[in-house]
Lab assay of single mutants.
Amino acid sequence: VRQEELAAARAALHDLMTGKRVATVQKDGRRVEFTATSVSDLKKYIAELEVQTGM
Rank of each mutant, 00 (worst) to 15 (best):
K44N: 10
E5V: 10
R31K: 14
K44V: 08
E5Q: 06
T53D: 11
R2M: 12
E5F: 08
Y45C: 04
A36H: 13
A11F: 06
A7G: 06
R10P: 01
A47R: 12
R2P: 06
L16R: 00
A36L: 15
A11E: 12
L16K: 00
S38Q: 14
K43Y: 14
G19L: 02
V51C: 11
Q3T: 12
E50Y: 07
K43N: 07
V32K: 05
M55N: 13
T37A: 15
G54D: 09
L13N: 00
D41W: 08
T53I: 11
M55P: 12
A8T: 07
T35C: 07
V51Y: 13
L16S: 00
A7Y: 09
R10V: 12
V51H: 07
V32H: 06
L49M: 08
T24Y: 15
K27P: 03
E5L: 12
E4S: 09
A7C: 11
G54A: 10
A36Q: 09
V51I: 14
D15L: 13
Q52E: 14
L42M: 01
Q52G: 11
R31A: 13
A11V: 09
R21M: 15
R2A: 04
R10I: 12
T35I: 04
S38G: 12
L16Q: 00
K44I: 12
E4H: 06
Y45T: 02
G19N: 05
R21A: 15
E5M: 09
A9N: 01
V1L: 08
V39C: 08
M55Q: 14
L13K: 01
R2Q: 14
L42H: 00
L16C: 03
Q52P: 08
T37L: 08
E33C: 08
T18E: 12
V39F: 07
S38L: 08
A23P: 03
L49A: 02
A23H: 03
R21N: 15
T24I: 15
A23W: 03
E50S: 08
S40E: 15
A7R: 13
Q52L: 14
M17Q: 11
V51K: 06
R30S: 09
E4T: 12
V51T: 13
V51P: 04
Q52A: 15
L13D: 00
G54L: 13
I46E: 01
D41K: 10
Q3W: 15
E33S: 09
R21G: 15
Q26W: 10
A8N: 11
V39E: 03
A8V: 10
V39L: 15
K20T: 11
K44A: 15
V39S: 04
T24N: 04
M55H: 12
S40I: 11
L13Q: 01
A47D: 09
D28L: 03
E33F: 09
A8M: 14
M17V: 12
D41S: 09
Q52W: 09
V51A: 14
E48I: 06
V39G: 02
G54H: 12
K43F: 06
V22R: 07
A7S: 12
T24C: 12
A8K: 09
T37C: 09
T35N: 09
A23E: 03
M55L: 14
E4C: 12
R2F: 11
E48V: 09
I46C: 01
T35P: 04
R10S: 04
V51M: 13
R2D: 11
M17R: 05
A47T: 09
R21L: 15
E50H: 05
M55V: 15
T18L: 08
E5N: 09
G54K: 05
D41N: 07
Y45Q: 02
K43G: 04
G29H: 04
K20F: 04
A11D: 10
K20G: 10
A8G: 09
G19F: 02
K43H: 09
E33Q: 05
T35V: 05
A7P: 03
V22A: 06
L13M: 06
V51F: 14
Q26M: 15
R31M: 14
R2N: 12
T18C: 12
A8R: 12
A12F: 02
A9F: 10
G29A: 03
Q3C: 11
S40V: 10
V25I: 14
K44L: 07
T24P: 04
A47S: 11
R10M: 13
R31Q: 14
T18D: 12
T37W: 05
T18H: 09
L16I: 10
H14T: 10
H14P: 00
I46Q: 00
M17S: 07
D28W: 01
A11H: 10
R2I: 08
D15A: 13
S38M: 15
T53M: 09
H14Q: 11
L42P: 00
L13F: 07
R30E: 07
G19M: 02
H14E: 11
K20L: 07
